[in-house]
Design a protein around this nucleic acid. Structure first.
Lengths: 192, 192
DNA sequence: GTACAATCGGAATCAGCATTCCGCTTGAAG
DNA sequence: CTTCAAGCGGAATGCTGATTCCGATTGTAC
């Protein structure tokens, strides 16, 4: 039986960690997280063996949400917009937080298995959305995943700094998206 | 009189610091820099009061080079390409190193006066190149400095991670630049 | 209500690093 | 060739912050 207070504390720790890590990034102190959760450091460590584990738990949850979103967008069957919407969503998720970019790091040395798995799924989800968008001519056919990942990473990192306002991020993405669109208006879909 | 060995050591420290900080970023250890320079830590500290000072010296030198480059490009009077060339140059300079991005941070809290000054000049140089490019219709008129800075920052940060090969960076920049160009072919310059 | 194991809290421990200190060395001036 | 201050190396110090430990609490089962 899981003690009720233990469950409650775990939740409090997660919540506190999400906000503290989001604000201060990986340099946030464990003491601060514990204080914010109204709990002793020892308790934090009972639930998460290490700072890195705590960090991973939070990032993992956020990535899962994004993956859900990707699946939803794909199911919505709007290939022309799904890719762009998802791209913007990832950037928006990163904005002001200081927590996500590492999850997108394509070449990590000491990544845990779970993180590696998420990374792969993220890449796949993005690749599918990209393929769909290219099929209907919403994205120029001569771009490929490597540059998409690099662009997404850069956009996320910049957003993550918290130095740019929402409108500036929007305008930046607009420029980027224009660069991704074909020069000529999209050819009518094959079935039209 | 400046002792010859002191001058020599200073140079060795700078050189070692440039490569070590470039490889490992701000987390590099002073011991490592000293070792790489073939010198004791004490010597490093004799020449640079603090790690931050050493870091600043290096960044400052690199930014100066970039500013020279900007001036040169402007003097070359090729407004249609200067802006893009400079943008790419900044990104190339950041590529693989882990040292420059902070210099572009637009909102620093505890920046030294000199750094603040360089930041300003960097912004101005970029603004001039942008203005020129827009005047001749090489860059769409509806983009402004804030988004340019955000895009440059993102591109530099991504390049800085060292996760992307040169070709990938080139293709990413190509996409970005396409987004910055006007949709219609540039109008002939007023004097044509 | 009582007993007991799971939890707690948070002080003490440990480790990593920047920075300081000081006795030794060495370039340069006379 | 001496002299001696500037410069040197690197051990010792101090601080910051993660992680561990253990006596005190507190759910839960009976």
């Amino acid at each position: 039986m899981i003690r009720s207070d233990a469950a409650r504390n775990r939740a409090k720790v997660l919540e506190a960690a999400e906000s503290v890590l989001g604000e201060q990034g990986p340099t946030a102190r464990m003491d601060e997280i514990a204080r914010r959760a109204g709990v002793g450091v020892g308790t934090v460590y009972r639930h998460f063996a290490t700072k890195e584990a705590l960090y991973a738990a939070i990032v993992s949850a956020r990535v899962d949400l994004l993956l859900d979103e990707a699946a939803r967008l794909r199911a919505a069957a709007e290939p022309a917009t799904g890719f762009f919407t998802f791209f913007a969503q990832v950037v928006a998720d990163a904005a002001g937080k200081k927590t996500l970019t590492d999850a997108l790091r394509s070449a990590g040395i000491d990544v845990k298995a779970e993180q590696e798995d998420q990374r792969t799924r993220m890449r796949e989800a993005l690749a599918e959305l990209l393929r769909d968008a290219q099929r209907v001519g919403a994205v120029r056919p001569d771009v490929d995943m490597p540059e998409i990942l690099a662009l997404l990473r850069g956009a996320s990192m910049a957003a993550e700094t918290g130095d740019y306002s929402g409108p500036v991020i929007d305008r930046s993405l607009a420029v980027l998206f224009d660069g991704l669109r074909p020069l000529a208006p999209p050819a009518p879909p094959p079935t039209a």
